[in-house]
Design a protein around this nucleic acid. Structure first.
Length: 895
RNA sequence: GCGGGGGUGGCGGAAUGGCAGACGCAGCGGCCUUAAAAGCCGCAGACCUUCGGGUCGUGAGGGUUCGAGUCCCUCUCCCCGCACCA
């Protein structure tokens, strides 16, 4: 592809800088503001980073593909934060590198534009969310474009665009058709302050994740997606993914698989009622000494005896009024009430007094998990033991440990101490007819034996449960996708595909109503409609949650302008899965689980071949910032702090302040705006600094003092090419024509390239930059020996990190075509090894001398040189062992 | 409590079981300059030193090894996630 390249600077600009003649000698300095906008504009106008789809005219099937994806942002009114470009720079480096290595790279960007943040802002400013969203997107796009990311802007998408959410609605219909979307009246999290219900992952300890408002459980009609049906596949699919252990652990924990059994207990005097419990330890059934139902359990009302009824009713009422916080965080102390009823342990005859176990209710048992009821085995469960202690219930021992400490073993055997490990069962763990006996069995064997025994009797079976709940998928808010659903007298009807996108009505008042109903209820004309048969129908007034659009956007990026399909099979077959997905950990169990779920459903419906959308996932750390506090612990904003020497003082009071590291926030007044950094140092410095701060995955503080160091590095790189005083656009005289490369510099260059390549592969950008710095330092010392070809290759390696300067140097040096399209320089492996290496010579593990030795020298030769180097330390000693690590060291072990 | 990850100079951080502290910041010295800034060259873990060098040193303690920041055990502190899930 041929481009008409822009001039290094236009003549008018040049004239303005020059005090004499435009072409006269002048001081040439690295000036990002003169370089960066020019290249950004060029890249954009010429669609330099366009990704080519199968079927496109210039598609080359022989080229390998690489899909590098950022978690697309909510375009908030605050604009870009320095945290955004961290992950974006990482994927951009990899994208640019992969292009140079001959990959067809898909690197797109878009906007997660529906949802609460956009709507909250619209309400605050009393402007329609469509308007504020469009404005915010404009700001984000402009800001991202000043950072030189190599996005294919032809693929830009917004989840709030009808051309996009048409397909979100279409996919939802497919979920519905497959029985995976249903209406439910179960209690859901309702947040009064936000005026909507929230999904489980949006509620933390009974408070909203966004805004930290209190939430409560309320039964409301809601749309729910059956993600639980995919629990097992979502769990097992994790194994093959290249994700961090911590993220996989978080998803595993959220899915919360646990294997055990359900056991049915008869209730004494209630022939028609059974208590079903779930337990992971069916083998401890011999130790079940009471039952606990959650206060909300349906059986409670029926089985409570008249004498206990008042106490039970009072407890149920009290539990219902407790906030989630009180029930979990604050109230670890066990509470509960006896119902007066008794269950019968199926292991014993009904008339055996051992079979009769009291049924209690307590709020440590959760109604939504398992069956909402447990068999309590205080001898083998800490919580049950604590409860038994508190209410003075007996603790029948079921274990006979044999640790050698007879006294301790006896304590356990008597049930005075609870034990949860793998301990031998006591001899009395057997049924009277001997059909079941646990002594001598391992936990696993005992579990199986008990389950088989119960199954034969018809009162229990093996059972696996999951903590994950179905995905609450509707919100009582305006700014989201409308459901393609009509309610008629016969029930639910789907809006036909050809009527999609079903757009939102234009409303002047889109605020939540303060009652659990969507503001859409006020759009009467929109709500009242006719169905396909011409009957009266009402549109669904709930809207989809923010996570709807983001659950499939990575698919749309493959084929973003397709008007007839959500994504062509050819496009998704080619591009998926995403090869590198970078974003924050905050989406660990929300977005990442939902996206995996939708992909699996679309796979099952034969719309995509891929089953796991994100092959490699990497979480960048948080960029923090210094903050200051006074002696009373009060936070002092940056604006009021003043540095004097090594310490920081309050500008007005003069009080000495202490420094700490914190998340950037308005509260601390320590937010760094990327626009300011670009203005002062340029985008290349910002990109490089963020990558140089430390490992990508770590959280690390922004240190304004470190930024100029990066700028200096780029300045030095520039200086290798451009003399301090010269005509504009001229390079050093020795670079104007080709000449042979200096061998020493060539070696440095090759090593640097090898290191950078290796580090990009590991996403270790900090050390890659360090390697480039070392090269520039070496090259600066011998700058007159550099040749043009070496600097062209340097520009190529610099380009993924500092694309503007790379491109500029390439052009100044007369590189062919566009650097962004040039291939990665080749490495000569021979140049990566030295002829002579310095080895350390140790005596008893202490370095006593250094010696130069030919690379690949024979062991005996190495030893001879080494022995001589440390002769004085070996004198009079006996060498008992000689360790030789070729190329590294020799160690003499002496006596 | 459970799960995941950490603790290395004044600071951010480098180190496939093989010379700890690369690189950058801050600091110090020199060159350049009338001077300063910028730039360039150099020094720089701590302690001791007869200036040759020596001793100590990666949160604490133990172990494995010729050799440990790295592997194992015990403890401790910090960050993140989950949290009465039976």
């Amino acid at each position: 592809m041929a481009f008409i390249l822009p001039g290094t600077r236009d003549a008018a600009y040049c004239f303005a800088l020059s005090t004499t003649h435009p072409m006269a000698e002048q001081r040439q300095v690295y000036e990002p503001a003169a370089i960066e906008p020019k290249w950004q504009q060029f890249w954009l106008e010429n669609k330099v980073f366009r990704a080519i789809n199968p079927g496109d005219p210039d598609f080359d099937a022989a080229q390998p593909k690489f899909y590098a994806l950022d978690m697309f942002p909510y375009p908030s009114a605050a604009g870009l934060h320095v945290g955004h470009p961290e992950g974006y720079t990482a994927t951009d480096i990899v994208s640019r590198y992969k292009r140079a290595k001959g990959f067809n790279v898909l690197h797109p960007m878009g906007w997660d534009a529906f949802g609460l943040p956009a709507e909250q802002y619209a309400i605050q400013t009393n402007t329609h969310p469509a308007k504020t969203t469009a404005a915010n997107i404009g700001t984000f796009r402009r800001q991202l474009q000043t950072l030189g990311f190599s996005y294919d802007w032809d693929r830009e998408i917004s989840t709030a665009d009808p051309a996009y959410f048409k397909w979100t609605q279409w996919i939802w219909k497919r979920l519905y058709e497959r029985g995976l979307a249903y209406e439910s009246n179960a209690p859901v999290w309702w947040c009064e302050a936000l005026g909507t219900v929230l999904a489980n992952d949006e509620v933390i300890n009974g408070r909203s994740e966004r805004g930290d408002h209190p939430c409560e459980r309320r039964p409301l009609r809601q749309w729910v997606l059956k993600i639980t049906e995919y629990a097992e596949r979502l769990l097992s699919g994790l194994e093959r993914l290249d994700w961090s252990d911590s993220l996989k652990a978080q998803q595993r924990e959220w899915i919360g698989k646990s294997e055990g059994a359900e056991i049915e207990f008869e209730v004494a005097g209630h022939a028609e009622d059974r208590v079903r419990v779930f337990t992971t330890r069916p083998d401890t059934l011999f130790g079940a000494s009471f039952m606990v139902l959650s206060p909300e359990h349906e059986l409670v009302k029926r089985i409570a005896t008249p004498e206990q009824l008042d106490a039970v009713a009072a407890y149920v009422k009290q539990a219902a009024s407790k906030s989630e916080l009180e029930r979990t965080d604050l109230a670890k102390d066990k509470t509960g009430v006896f119902t007066g009823a008794y269950a019968l342990n199926p292991l014993f005859e009904a008339d055996d007094p051992k079979a009769r176990i009291p049924i209690w209710i307590a709020d440590y048992v959760i109604v939504t998990y398992g069956t909402g009821a447990i068999m309590a085995v205080p001898a083998g469960d800490e919580r049950d033991f604590e409860f038994a202690q508190k209410f003075d219930l007996p603790v029948p021992g079921i274990f006979a440990p044999d640790t050698g400490d007879a006294e301790a073993d006896a304590v356990v055997a008597r049930g005075e101490r609870c034990i949860t490990g793998d301990v031998p069962f006591a001899a009395h763990c057997r049924t009277s007819d001997g059909s079941l006996a646990l002594a001598g069995k391992s936990i696993a064997d005992a579990k199986r034996a008990v389950i088989d025994w119960l199954a034969a009797k018809g009162c229990g079976e093996a059972k696996t449960t999951y903590k994950i709940r179905d995905w609450l998928f509707s919100r009582q808010r305006y700014w989201g996708e409308p459901f393609p659903v009509l309610h008629t007298e016969d029930g639910v009807e789907l809006v036909p595909d050809e009527q999609l996108a079903l757009e939102l009505p234009d409303m002047a008042d889109f605020k939540p109503g303060g009652v659990p109903e969507s503001p859409l209820i006020r759009a009467r004309e929109w709500v009242a409609t006719k169905d396909a048969k011409g009957r009266d129908a009402q549109r669904e007034i709930n809207t989809m949650p923010g996570a709807a659009g983001s659950s499939w956007y990575f698919l749309r990026f493959c084929d973003p302008n397709n008007a007839t399909e959500f994504c062509s099979k050819a496009a998704s077959d080619y591009w998926l899965p995403v090869d590198l997905y970078v974003g924050g950990t905050e989406h660990a169990v929300g977005h990442l689980l939902y996206s995996r779920f939708w992909t699996k459903v679309l796979h099952d419906a034969d719309h995509v071949a891929c089953e796991e959308p994100f092959h490699k996932l990497y979480n960048q750390g948080m960029i923090q910032s210094f903050a200051y506090r006074d002696s009373r612990g009060g936070v002092v904003p940056w604006a009021d702090a003043e540095e004097r020497g090594d310490d920081v003082f309050h500008k007005e009071t003069g009080e000495k302040l202490s420094r700490f590291v914190a998340k950037m926030s308005k509260r601390y007044g320590n937010v760094v705006n990327p626009d300011d950094v670009v203005k002062e140092f340029g985008a290349d410095t910002l990109r490089l600094y963020e990558m140089y701060m430390g490992p990508l995955a770590d959280s690390k503080p922004w240190n304004p003092k470190d930024v100029p160091g990066i700028y200096r590095f780029l300045q030095r790189a520039w200086r290798l090419v451009v003399p301090e005083f010269s005509e504009h656009g001229r390079v050093h005289a020795h670079l104007r024509e080709d000449r042979p490369a200096d061998p020493a510099l060539e070696k440095h260059l090759h090593r640097m390239i090898a290191k950078v390549e290796d580090d990009i592969g590991r996403l270790a950008f900090n050390t890659a930059i360090s390697a480039m710095m070392i090269f520039v330092n070496e090259a600066t010392k011998a700058s007159d020996k550099l040749c043009r070809d070496q600097l062209l290759r340097f520009a190529q390696v610099l380009q993924p990190f500092a694309p503007h300067l790379g491109e500029e140097l390439w052009q100044l040096l007369g590189g062919e075509g566009l650097l962004a399209r040039a291939p990665w320089p080749a490495i000569d492996p021979k140049l990566l090894v030295d002829d002579e290496v310095e080895i350390a010579v140790q005596v008893k593990g202490k370095v006593r001398a250094k010696a130069m030795i030919g690379n690949g020298a024979a062991k005996d030769d190495i030893l001879a040189v080494a022995r001589e180097a440390v002769a004085k330390y070996l004198d009079g000693k006996t060498v008992v062992k000689e360790i030789v690590v070729p190329g590294k060291l020799v160690n003499f072990v002496v006596k």
